[in-house]
Each structure stands twice: as structure tokens, then as C-alpha cells.
Design a protein around this nucleic acid. Sequence first.
DNA 1: TTTTGTGAACTAGTTCACAGCT
DNA 2: AGCTGTGAACTAGTTCACAAAA
Lengths: 223, 223
Amino acid sequence: MRAPKSRQHGENVSELTTNRLSVYLRCLTELEAQGARTVSSQSLAEQFHLNAAQIRKDLAYFGEFGVRGVGYYVRDLKRHLRQILGLDRSLRVGIIGAGNLGQALADYPGFRQEGFEIAALFDNQVGKVGQQSRSGVPIYEVNDLRKHVKRDQISIAVLAVPASAAQRVADVVVAAGIKAILNFTPGTLQVPEDVKVKGVDLTVSLESLSFFLAHGEFAEDDE
Amino acid sequence: MRAPKSRQHGENVSELTTNRLSVYLRCLTELEAQGARTVSSQSLAEQFHLNAAQIRKDLAYFGEFGVRGVGYYVRDLKRHLRQILGLDRSLRVGIIGAGNLGQALADYPGFRQEGFEIAALFDNQVGKVGQQSRSGVPIYEVNDLRKHVKRDQISIAVLAVPASAAQRVADVVVAAGIKAILNFTPGTLQVPEDVKVKGVDLTVSLESLSFFLAHGEFAEDDE
DNA sequence: TTTTGTGAACTAGTTCACAGCT
DNA sequence: AGCTGTGAACTAGTTCACAAAA
């Protein structure tokens, strides 16, 4: 039996779970490179500091991918995970904001790695439009976003614009039919229910680290 | 009564909580700019799509900052939050890896905003060492990390190096006495217990969005 | 009256422990 | 024997609801 129940799921799956699925995929890729053909949830957990029961639960939710007494076939499980994560289709990404960060992200090799294609950068600064990033990603006018989303089948937008423009640009992105946004601007975006936003909030991350520094090490000065 | 119990806490506080504290601080800054002097947990929750009880609980853990029947004094609460988050000390950041991403982060205005100072970039490429970023952050040799951490009082390291170098560089960072790392490389770092790592995993974020696209919208093709 | 601070109730997420398959 | 898949137990996190303060 191949894929017993897969899909029509997706409703209840928490973001913590999907994040872990992505992590599992990465672990399997590493194992495969090391030449492993099968792996048990136990050894996977030990090598990558995860919990075996959780791995099994996460995977079992999408199908019976394991073989009792054996474990999981690395190659097969990788394929299943890629399918579950929707990485078997081609995923094109548009980056809005061709500033330092936007261009750096456009040229970031990590993105391409797992099969994401950076299709285009978008900006409204005349000097930038028509140019391209170091690695050759073209920069288009933000006003033409809708057109390029259609033409290049862009399904994910990365927001790397100044904070002040964030919501306005998000509205444009949503209007262009994008349903998934990776948001590098600080703060929350207001979007319709059917649009998923994932925030990468550098200020929050740094301040959280600051809290740890302030409280983690005891007895620094007063009292 | 000013700061009734503050600090000696920090042990039990979850990362979700510290993240929220940072968000509250940002909300208050916005409110203050709008001229608000006081704010109730209720109105704070409504305006920024948070939960009023949770705001109160989060804050009450660190002290009795509110006034019954009134709410919180915006300016006071901001000050308290900055103190709780450890933002009242000067926080210097070193970015390891002066590639596209590292340099973009070095010049990212969002970092400086809330009082973080990007003290230096570090790289081991001869062509880069001795140069500086567009906004003037100097690039030093990674081998001199320890020296600069001491000299410039760097307390937070941002890892923006290739995945293959991540663990090796993390070890160097830890050896230099850094206790807080913001990690842009994919995968987990092995560090001692007293070092805090916060990961920004772009691949995981994108793949999580991909999952949503694959499952969020119903009835796309087969079955 | 308004709004905090907080125990109690609830919900979500994780881990345990074992029956059952190979 | 070895390992999965999973109900049950547990832990963490959130929200409710209300007594007490201003």
C-alpha cells in the first residue's frame, strides 16, 4: 500500500507540525547523502535531537509511511514529505522591495536549494526597475505585480519593504491573487482569511535574545 | 509603588511570552506616537488583534504596572517593558558572514531602531576584511572575533554564513564568550546550555507556506 | 464604574507506553 | 526482535470570569 489516506487533511495541521515536517525533510536529505536507506524514528530523533514519538505522530497523520520492525525508507519518506509539503509542484517566489535585504534574499542560495525559484524582484524606485540582482533576478515595477504574478505563476510573495509601506504593499500583493506571504517587515499585516502570512520579525527575535541576556545569567548588578 | 517584584524572574518565562513582550513594546510605541497617555488591555487587544487577558497576565508576571479603572500609563509601561527586555543597557551586535545577507542585515535600519548597535561584520575572505558595509560597518577577520567581542562589548552574534560553515562558526562564537545567537543558517546548532540560539529558518518558513498552498485551498485537482 | 490581576477552566501540544504488525 | 502507529497521560499555553482596587 502506497499512500493510504494522504491529503484532504490540512485543516487541523498546526504550524508547529508543518515546520517540523520541513525539518524532517532536511534531516532525511542529510541522511540520504550519508547513504542511509532506512531510518527509525528513534535514530532520527537521536541524531537530530527530536522526539521519536512526535516524529511518528506527525508522519502517521498523513499516512502509514513506516514499516514495523524496519523503520522508514529514507528515499520514499523524502518523496512523501515533499508531496505533503507541496514541493512537488514548481513554486515561484516574488520578492517585493529591491533594497539591500530584498536583493540579498533574491541571491540567497538557500531558497533555490529546496526547489523554490525566485522569479522576480519588485520595486517602485525608477533607478532600480529594469535592472537585475547580482544573480540575475529581474527587477520589475510594483504596479506590474499582478501581470507578472499571472505570467510567471508566482505563488509566494516575500515582503522586504520599509515598515511604513508594509500594509499598503500587502494589500497590493493580496489584490494580485497571492495567497502566501513571507513578511520581513515588523508588525502584523491585515489580510483576508484565505491568505497565509509568515512573519520573520528581526526586532522581536533580537529583543527576545536581549531578554535572555538580561535574565538568563543571574546576579549581574543591583539587589 | 513603582516596581514591586521585578526580575529574579526569567527562569520560567517562555519564548512565546518574551516575543509578545516585544510586540507590546512596539504597540505602545505606536500608541505613544499617536499621543495616547493611557491604554487599557482591552483597547490594546482590540487595536492590535491580541487577547486582553493574555496581555494582563504577561505584564502582571513582572509587576503591577496597571491602575485599576484606568489601564496602563503608556510611557511608564514602555519604560518597564524596555527594562524587562533588557533594552535599557546598550546592546551591540556582531554579524558573522559579510556576504549578501550579512551586509544587508548590517545596513538594515530596523535593527538600529530599537537600540541595537551593529558593531561589526566578520568574514574570513581576504578581499572583504578591512572593507566596510555601505552604511559603514567595518568588516574584521573572523579569527579576531574574540578580540572585538571584548573590545566592542558585543553580546549578540548574528550568523549569516553558508550552511556548511554554520556549526564551526557557532563554536568560534561560543568560544568568544557570546551567549546569544540569531541564526540565519538552516538546521540546528549544537551549543552549551547557557547559550541561547534563535533560528530564522527561511527554508522552513517557505516550506510551511508551501504546505498551506497545497492544502489550504480545497479541490485543486485530483480526488 | 472601569479595569486590573488572577484562580479556574479550557485548549493545544508533547511524551509515554504499549498493542500489534513485519 | 524491532519498530510503527496510537490511545492515554501529561505538560504548556490560552482564555474565561470575577473578586478586589481605584
